[in-house]
Design a protein around this nucleic acid. Structure first.
Length: 364
DNA sequence: CAGCCGTGGGC
DNA sequence: TGCCCAAGGCT
C-alpha cells in the first residue's frame, strides 16, 4: 500500500475514502484480481480485461459471467482467439446482443496478434485505435490492466459524479464537466482500483433508483444528497418513442427435424448472424406466404414480439414441411446442431413458436 | 451529434 | 405492463 515513489500526488480525501470502501466491499468477479493482489503490483491479464470490458458494454455483469467463462475456456489468450474464425466467435456470442462487438472482437484479436505480437498495447491512445475499443474501454483497460491514471467514465461513474457535484447539465453534454471533476480525483496510486471502486459504488450503492446513501463513503460530500434528491441526477434527455415494425418468418422443417437457415448480411442489425428465411420488416406489415423466398405449404404458427433498442418487432411465423437440398445460400441445421448456430434471440423465439423446445430437446 | 445497434432483469 | 437500465462503439 505504501507508495514507493515520493513524487506522486497525494490521494485526495475522497479517493482515500473510496479506496478504503473498495478494499472492504469490492465485488468478486471472474475477470478481476483482488485489491490485495493489485496492491502487490500484480496486474490483471490484459486479454481478460479487454474481453470482459467489451462484453460488459451495455450489458449486465450477470449476463456476461457465463459468456466470459465459456470464451476464456475455449480461447485462453488473444492468439487463440485470433486463430478462431469470425463465425466461431459469432456462434459463441449468440444471445449476448450487439453483435458488432463480436465482429470487432475478432478484428481486434487479429490486430493484436499480427501487429503487437500477441501483446496488448499499454497506452490509452494505442488501445483506443483498436477495433471495438472506444474512449471508455481504452481508459478502463489502461487503468485496470496497466495501472495507468486514465480518466474512466462509464454510466455508473457518470451517475456517481453528477450526484456528488450536482451536475444538472443533461447527458451527454455533461460529459465535459464530469471529466473535469473526475480528473481532479484520479491519481497515479491505484488508478485501476479507483475506477473499479467507482463502478462498484455505482452498481451497489449509488443506484439509479433508491440509492443506499446511508452506506456511501461519499455521504458527507454528496451535493445531491444534501439536496435530498439524489435520484434527480444524472439529468437525461427524453428518449425517442419506439416504433413498431412487422415482418414474416418462415420455418422450413425437414422430416428429420432439421430447420432451414441462412446468414444475414455482415453489416447492420444482427449482422453476420444466422436467421430463418423471412420477409423484410417495415411499419406497414401485411407480409405472408407470398413473401417467402421459396414456395411451400406455409401454415400460420403464431406471432412473436421482440423488443429491440430502437423498434419493436412483430413477426408472423409460418411453417411448412420441406424435403430436398437447401436452396442456394441456405443450409439445413439438424436438431443437434441448432443450439450451436449463431442464432440471435429473436430467431430462437421464431423457431420456438413453430417447434416448441427446439433448443431444449438436444440439451446435454 | 444523434441514430443505430440486443437482450434480460427489475420495479 | 411498460419503461428504464446495464462497465458503449461506430458512423
Amino acid at each position: 500500500m505504501t507508495l514507493l515513489s515520493t513524487d506522486l500526488p497525494p490521494l485526495s480525501p475522497k479517493a482515500e475514502r473510496l479506496l478504503a470502501w473498495y478494499d472492504r466491499h469490492h465485488r468478486v468477479l471472474p475477470w478481476r484480481i483482488s485489491p490485495a493482489e493489485a496492491a502487490r503490483g500484480v496486474h490483471a491479464d490484459p486479454y481478460r480485461i479487454w474481453l470482459s470490458e467489451v462484453m460488459l458494454q451495455q450489458t449486465t455483469v450477470e449476463a456476461v459471467k457465463k459468456y466470459f467463462l465459456a470464451f476464456t475456456e475455449r480461447w485462453p489468450d488473444v492468439l487463440a482467439m485470433a486463430a478462431a474464425s469470425e463465425d466461431d466467435i459469432l456462434r459463441a456470442w449468440a444471445g449476448l446482443g450487439y453483435y458488432s462487438r463480436a465482429r470487432n472482437l475478432k478484428k481486434c484479436a487479429d490486430v493484436v496478434a499480427q501487429q503487437y505480437g500477441g501483446h496488448f498495447p499499454d497506452t490509452e491512445e494505442s488501445l483506443r485505435a483498436l477495433p471495438g475499443i472506444g474512449a471508455y474501454t481504452a481508459a478502463a483497460i489502461a487503468a485496470i490492466a496497466f495501472n495507468r491514471p486514465a480518466v474512466v467514465i462509464d454510466g455508473n461513474i457518470e451517475r456517481v459524479v453528477t450526484r456528488l457535484y450536482r451536475i444538472d447539465t443533461p447527458l451527454p453534454q455533461a460529459k465535459a464537466a464530469i471529466r473535469a471533476e473526475l480528473a481532479g480525483l484520479v491519481t497515479a496510486d491505484r488508478p485501476g482500483d479507483f475506477s473499479q471502486a467507482l463502478m462498484d459504488l455505482g452498481s451497489s450503492i449509488c443506484t439509479p433508483r433508491r440509492p443506499t446513501c446511508i452506506l456511501c463513503p461519499f455521504k458527507d460530500d454528496c451535493e445531491a444528497l444534501a439536496l435530498d434528491e439524489p435520484e434527480r441526477f444524472p439529468v437525461k434527455k427524453p428518449k425517442a418513442e419506439r416504433p413498431v415494425r412487422h415482418g414474416a418468418a418462415f420455418i422450413a422443417l425437414r422430416a428429420d427435424g432439421a430447420i432451414l437457415l441462412r446468414k444475414r448480411p455482415d453489416k447492420g442489425l444482427l449482422g453476420g448472424m444466422a436467421e430463418v428465411p423471412g420477409s423484410s420488416w417495415d411499419a406497414t406489415g401485411g407480409f405472408g406466404p407470398a413473401d417467402a423466398p421459396f414456395a411451400a405449404d406455409w401454415q400460420p404458427a403464431g406471432t412473436i414480439t421482440h423488443i429491440f433498442t430502437h423498434f419493436a418487432l412483430m413477426l408472423d411465423v409460418y411453417q411448412a414441411q420441406l424435403e430436398g437440398p437447401a436452396p442456394a445460400g441456405m443450409w439445413w441445421s439438424a436438431p443437434s446442431d441448432l443450439t450451436g448456430e449463431a442464432l440471435p434471440t429473436v430467431m430462437k423465439k421464431a423457431i420456438e413458436a413453430a417447434v416448441p423446445n427446439a433448443f431444449r430437446r438436444q440439451a446435454r
